[in-house]
Design a protein around this nucleic acid. Structure first.
Length: 479
DNA sequence: ATGTGC
């Protein structure tokens, strides 16, 4: 997007002994004196120039090396690659041994996607659209939702994620979930990545959310959050892989519900705390790295590495339950409005998380795990198709795939110029966006994003994923 | 990402 900046960056990288080449849709940054080993690689479709700032951030991330020991074995980026605020680009994947990098996940711990389908035609849905939308607006925007739960349930949630929380809820159901089928929720945890359960520690959660006695009335649970987060009603537009779609319970013409959200303020709290801790334990006699990205080394601080991973898992557990509850409110309202409608879970997948893989860890920031057979959910903008995919496990891209289309225009740009552009220019013609904030609708307009089709195609061509089904948007809730 | 900041 910034050819001048890019030229300057390439010259600067050259001075550091780094070469950038473009071949087979992939930008590769290599050490000039060892051209066989790429420092970092970015997959981009034809016609999408690389952003200098994002490439610089990826090169910085690839160079993170704790002085006490630890290395980055591989760094790469998916085609939705764009600059991030905290010095780490969105769409970065980094494989580390002997160190973990808290800021490579950042604040939005266990941001991810959840997909449900329902046997309801688009005509049946639209016939009662207004009533349904009003109820969801109440839950998502006006706080009519009731997610009250016991301190014990919150502790179990942070400690064990979905299954632990469900046990506590079965023991003492509270709030809206009283009307849910908790048995169905238990069976569905198979369709959540890692069963929706990581090794957390409730003592690492924000104190006010884990009382020993009494109830937590809200805790921020079942809220969508800002930015690119959303809840979207969709239609299964086209099935490409009948075998997998059938196995996953997906059929053409079904209604679908896609949820994009994360661990909200809990992730912000834990991500921020550990970014600061990693900085605080940087060796006193050494200057800070220019990138301001601080790893934790297993050699010098094994206990901090372990507790960071447990803290990240604690926030991740909250993220799983947050998406589950956003979906549960949808299902409750769906049954009220449309009667006897089932809306089974297809899959729930994080795209912002550290996972033990190989000899160390893989940290994905805005990138899906896409190992062989893994269901992968990739949303387009609110005016474009979204995709249900299956992973093919390409090790060249750390068994990963993009988490969306990726921004091409900044929020700042849309805020400044968007209001004076036409609906057609913004790509908003025919888009049914439900929000209380007009500026959000413009910031997140389809024109802010890359065309999803080329982002999907380049990843299929690279052997990272295959399409299972294509979903078209019906209406989108944006907080 | 964040009831935020260009």
């Amino acid at each position: 997007m910034q050819p001048k900046n890019l030229k300057r960056l390439l010259r600067a990288l050259g001075r550091q002994g780094l070469d950038v080449t473009y071949n087979n849709h992939t930008y590769s940054v290599r050490l000039a004196n060892s051209p066989d080993f790429p420092v970092a690689e970015v997959l981009l479709p034809e016609g999408f120039p690389i952003e200098a700032k994002a490439l610089k951030q990826l090169t910085n991330l690839a160079s993170v090396r704790h002085p006490s020991g630890g290395c980055v074995c591989r760094a790469c980026a998916t085609p939705d690659f764009h600059p991030g605020d905290a010095g780490v680009a969105i769409g970065s994947v980094v494989e580390t041994v002997g160190q973990v990098i808290p800021s490579a996940v950042g604040s939005d711990i266990n941001c991810g996607m959840r997909l449900h389908v329902a046997d309801l035609t688009i005509e049946q849905f639209l016939a009662k659209r207004d009533e349904f939308v009003e109820r969801m607006k109440g839950d998502y925007f006006f706080g009519t939702r009731d997610v009250t739960m016991t301190g014990q349930a919150m502790q179990a949630l942070f400690q064990y994620g979905v299954p632990g929380w469900l046990d506590a809820m079965l023991d003492r159901p509270t709030g809206s979930v009283v009307k849910s089928d908790l048995q169905q929720l238990a069976e569905e945890s198979d369709a959540i990545f890692l069963g929706g359960s990581m090794d957390g520690d409730w003592k690492l959660a924000p104190e006010e959310l884990v009382p020993d006695a009494g109830l937590v009335r809200d805790g921020g649970l079942a809220t969508i959050g800002g930015g690119n987060h959303f809840v979207e009603v969709q239609r299964i537009d086209k099935v490409e892989n009948r075998t997998l779609a059938h196995a996953w319970g997906v059929r053409e013409g079904q209604l679908a519900f896609m949820i994009h959200s994360g661990s909200r303020n809990v992730g912000k709290y834990i991500g921020g705390m550990w970014r600061d801790k990693a900085k605080a334990v940087w060796p006193k006699n050494l200057k800070y790295p220019d990138s301001q990205i601080f790893p934790l080394s297993t050699s010098s601080h094994p206990e901090l590495v372990a507790s960071y991973l447990q803290a990240e898992a604690t926030a991740a557990n909250y993220g799983f339950v947050n998406r589950l509850l956003l979906a549960e409110l949808l299902r409750l309202r769906l049954r009220e409005v449309y009667k006897d409608v089932e809306a089974p879970l297809v899959y729930d997948l994080p795209h912002n998380i550290t996972l033990p893989e190989g000899e160390g860890w893989v940290t994905r920031k805005g990138a899906c795990p896409a190992h062989v057979g893994q269901p992968v959910i990739i949303p387009g903008s609110m005016g474009a198709y979204s995709y249900l995919m299956v992973g093919r496990g390409n090790p060249a891209f750390c068994n990963s795939a993009s988490h969306g289309a990726g921004r091409i225009r900044s929020r700042f740009d849309l805020n400044r110029r968007g209001a004076s552009e036409s609906e057609a220019e913004l790509g908003l013609t025919g888009v049914d966006c439900i929000t209380l904030r007009e500026e959000r609708r413009i910031e997140e307009a389809p024109a802010a994003y890359k065309p999803i089709q080329s982002v999907i195609d380049v990843q299929v061509a690279a052997g990272m994923v295959d399409v299972v089904a294509r979903l078209s948007p019906v209406l989108t809730f944006k907080a």
